[in-house]
Amino acid sequence: MTHLARLERDALCDTFLATGPDAPTLCSPWSTADLAAHLVVRDRRPDLAPGVWVPALASRLEEGQAGYAAKPWPELVDLVRSGPPVWSPARIAPVDDLVNFVEFVIHHEDVLRGDEQVGPRRTVSQRESHAVWTSLNRLGRLLFRRSPVGVVLRDPDGTSTHVRPTTELGTVVLEGAPVELLLAAYGRRRVAEIEVLGSAEAVEALWGAPLGLS
Rank of each mutant, 00 (worst) to 15 (best):
His38Trp: 06
Gly140Ser: 06
Val111Gly: 00
Phe101Gly: 05
Ala36Tyr: 07
Val179Ser: 03
Arg164Tyr: 02
Thr15Ala: 12
Ala49Lys: 10
Ala131Val: 12
Val191Gly: 00
Leu181Phe: 01
Ala184Phe: 07
Val111Ser: 00
Ala200Leu: 04
Val203Ile: 15
Leu142His: 09
Ile106Trp: 00
Glu195Ala: 11
Glu201Thr: 15
Glu75Val: 14
Ser129Met: 01
Leu211Lys: 08
Ala184Cys: 13
Val151Glu: 01
Met1Asp: 12
Cys13Met: 08
Ile92Thr: 03
Trp87Asp: 01
Ala70Asp: 14
Tyr68Cys: 01
Thr161Tyr: 05
Leu153Gly: 06
Ala58Thr: 15
Leu7Trp: 01
Glu75Tyr: 04
His162Cys: 03
Ala131Thr: 12
Phe16Met: 15
Glu201Ala: 15
Leu183Pro: 00
Arg60Gln: 14
Leu76Ile: 09
Trp73Leu: 09
Arg60Glu: 14
Leu213Pro: 04
Ala11Ile: 02
Arg44Ser: 12
Val179Phe: 01
Glu109Asn: 08
Ala185Phe: 09
Pro21Ala: 10
Ala18Asp: 14
Val173Arg: 15
Val54Asp: 10
Phe16Asn: 09
Leu57Ala: 15
Asp96Arg: 11
Glu63Phe: 02
Glu128Arg: 04
Ala11Asn: 05
Ala69Gly: 05
Gly170Gln: 08
Ala37Pro: 06
